[in-house]
């Protein structure tokens, strides 16, 4: 290992939809991401201060101080803050990185007549909602005064209404194409999600200089790139 990592910080990166734009961002900061791109099995890259993980684990590592900063989606933060109760995850949300834009929607099957989810609610008093985001879904339906039975699934949510597991789904969609292909229609937009830079509360104080420098550079990058990743 040669010298300290270039930013003086340990960064948690999500392996997932945000990985490619996050790498592009690191490249623009002058970090050599070659090894990150070419080696999918390696998890730790001490030479550039990067650790990689499943997206929903990023706040966990950052909150515990195992990483100083992390890149994660607002969807992950929202889902986990509902998990942690009103206090939320104990991390700083420092910057909207702008990339990875997607919308959390409530969708149901296309139909000639009434929206099947609405019909279930009217006639059966409750709609069944399949989702990978049970807390965001439950919170949204509670806030809008509707009874729902939340069905948590881990894989493709789109299957649920087709197979008759649920009348509706709550899921993240970037282009709407997958929904369309599965004959689903967006009924409600819940929240717009983008990538966020988060920081551990202790690192935020004890590594303030390195952190502020990173934020400055990212902000400048966002201005010149229109936050497009």
């Amino acid at each position: 290992m040669s010298g300290p990592p270039p930013l003086g910080l340990t960064i948690a990166l999500p392996r997932g939809a945000l990985f490619a734009p996050a790498l592009a961002l690191l490249q623009r900061l002058g970090i050599d991401t070659h090894e990150l791109e070419s080696n999918e099995r390696r998890l730790i890259f001490p030479e550039i201060g990067v650790i990689t993980m499943r997206p929903s684990d990023v706040p966990t590592y950052v909150e515990a101080g195992a990483a100083d900063v992390g890149i994660t989606g607002r969807d992950v933060l929202l889902e986990q803050s509902e998990l942690a109760g009103r206090e939320g995850r104990a991390v700083y949300e420092l910057l909207d990185l702008g990339f990875g834009r997607a919308v959390m929607v409530l969708a149901s099957a296309r139909s000639e007549g009434e929206d099947p989810a609405r019909r279930a609610l009217r006639r059966l008093g409750v709609m069944r909602v399949a989702t990978k985001y049970p807390r965001i879904a439950a919170g949204h339906l509670e806030r809008t005064g509707r009874q729902a039975e939340i069905v948590e699934v881990k894989g493709s949510t789109e299957l649920a209404p087709i197979a008759g597991l649920a009348e509706a789904i709550v899921d993240l969609t970037a282009t709407g194409r997958t929904l369309q292909e599965n004959n689903l229609v967006v009924r409600e937009e819940i929240v717009v999600c983008t990538a966020r830079l988060i920081a551990n509360p202790v690192s935020h104080k004890l590594k303030a200089q390195a952190l502020d420098e990173l934020v400055q550079r990212l902000r400048k990058d966002g201005e010149s790139n229109g936050f497009q990743g």
Partner: peptide, 20 residues
Amino acid sequence: ELGYYTGAIFEVYDPALGHP
């Protein structure tokens, strides 16, 4: 987070721990 604090407040940090 405590409602009864009125003035100076402080936290203790150590680089070996991720929480105050």
